[in-house]
Structure formats: C-alpha cells, structure tokens
Amino acid sequence: MAIQEICAVRANEYLGSGLYRMVIKTEKIAASAACGQFVHLTCGEGNLLRRPISICDADSEAGTLTMLYEVKGDGTAWLAARRAGDKIDVLGPLGHGFDAAKLGARPVLLGGGIGVPPMLLTAKTCAKNSAAVTMIAGARTRDLVVLEPEFSDFDYTVCTDDGSYGVHGFVTDVLREKITGATGVAACGPKPMLKAIAAIAKEAGVPCQVSMEERMGCGIGACLVCACALSAKNGETRYGHVCKDGPVFDAEEVQW
C-alpha cells in the first residue's frame, strides 16, 4: 500500500550534467520499498501533478531512500534547489517492481541513462538471494556515467555511445557476450533499448523483465495517461497502466 509522507531531505548532491542524487528520511516508505518501484514527489506548491522518480536504493535500518534524477523542467528544477532539512511530500512506494526471485541465480541487469539507478536496488536484492549478478550500464558519454562505485561488488561493465569511457558501444553489444548461462534479464531505459534487449533475450530463451517509461498523471492508475499496449492471452491487445500494473512487465507481454 502506498504511503503519503512529508519527508526531510538528508542530502541533495549535484553529480554533474544535470544529474542529482537525493537522500530523504522516510522510515515507512524505505521499509516497504522493493526494487523497480518508484515514488511520486510534489515539486513546488504550484505544480499540481507529482513527478515520478525511480527508487535507487532503500535502507530500512537507516530509514532512508535514495533517488537519482535529471533536471528537465520546472518541477525537477525545484527539486534540485532543495537543501538538507527541507521537506518534500512523497507518495510511495508505487508500482510493481522486478521479481528478483524469477531472475534466478545468474541474472543479467541492464540500465541505460537514467534507467541505471533503479538497477542498484535490484542488484542488491538479487545478491541477497545469493545470485551472481552481472550489471551492464550504458550512457551517452563519460560525464553521464553514474553509480560506478556502488556497482563495484558485481560483475560490472560500463559502455558509452561515444567511446569516451568503458566499452565503445551499446549495452546490447555487451549483453550478447554475457547472456550465455544467464537465468534472467532485467532492464530499465529508453524503449528502443528495451525492445532490442527483449529480442536478444527471447532469441537466447532467457526470461526478460523490462521497466517501461511513460508520462504519468496520478501515479496510482486512476487516470489513463500512462497506458501501455500489452498482449492478452487470446492474442488481442489489452492496455495496462505503467504506474499501477508496471512499471515492470514481462517483455513477452509488451507490444513493441
């Protein structure tokens, strides 16, 4: 069940290139958060619609939640101006996240751009299940690579589109090399990336879970803003809500 809470900002660190890492104090949400879920933040008094931000990490003992976000408009600009001690209206955790148990003993996780942060809690959750985690992170350029130290405990590969850091290429290039022996694939990032990952996993016969991104209104399934076309069992098209039925779906369900 989602919890609405007024949370204190612990830290709001600028990482460069418009990216920020925010840590908030929220014992209740942190205790119930699962990998792949998100929170909905009120960003300023004049903004009626909340902003969805993926959960990067959750520490139930410390009662803290970590999020990474990119400044793209007035709402996230307001968020970037918050300082330690400021209060934020938070609703969460929301949505259905990754099923870590179904990813098996040798999961391959992939994140592209701002899709990298939610894979950190996913990797940690899989590791708690004694899984040997492979993580592949992609960014356009070196300045946009995030969380590299946090992923150092795993088999970690970073690639950049322009070759300025790590492997020159896309996460899908590395996936083709790493998928042999994988028991599951989980990914978050731009839709074209997810479509390509789903195709590679299907060809290899490996189950794949994808976290979809769509514009959201309410965040709880009451509006129709974040509809996503899915395949029903009878072959017809059905529509799910990314906020309520997702954001994570079985890749075989998604109509690309």
Rank of each mutant, 00 (worst) to 15 (best):
C7E: 10
L15G: 01
L15C: 07
L19T: 04
Y20I: 00
R21V: 00
T26H: 01
T26M: 03
I29L: 04
C35S: 11
G36W: 02
T42R: 00
G46W: 09
L48K: 13
L49T: 11
R50H: 12
R50T: 13
D57A: 09
D57G: 01
A62M: 08
A62I: 02
A62R: 11
T64I: 08
L65G: 04
Y69W: 03
V71A: 02
V71W: 07
G73F: 01
A77E: 15
W78F: 12
R82S: 05
D86R: 12
K87N: 12
V90Y: 13
D99A: 11
D99Y: 07
A100I: 06
R106M: 13
V108M: 09
G111K: 01
M119S: 04
M119V: 09
A123I: 03
T125V: 07
A127W: 09
N129Y: 04
A132S: 10
I136K: 01
G138C: 01
D143S: 11
L147A: 04
F154A: 09
Y156T: 09
C159G: 00
D162Y: 09
G163F: 06
G169L: 05
T172R: 03
V174N: 00
V174Y: 03
L175P: 00
I179K: 04
I179T: 00
G181C: 05
G181H: 05
G181Q: 12
A186L: 08
A187F: 11
A196F: 02
A198V: 00
A198P: 03
A199C: 08
I200L: 14
A204D: 05
V206K: 02
M216S: 05
G217Q: 15
C218E: 09
I220F: 10
I220V: 15
C226P: 04
C226Y: 03
A229Y: 05
S231H: 12
A232K: 14
A232E: 13
G235D: 12
G235L: 04
E236A: 15
K244T: 14
F249M: 14
D250C: 14
A251L: 09
A251P: 02
W256N: 11
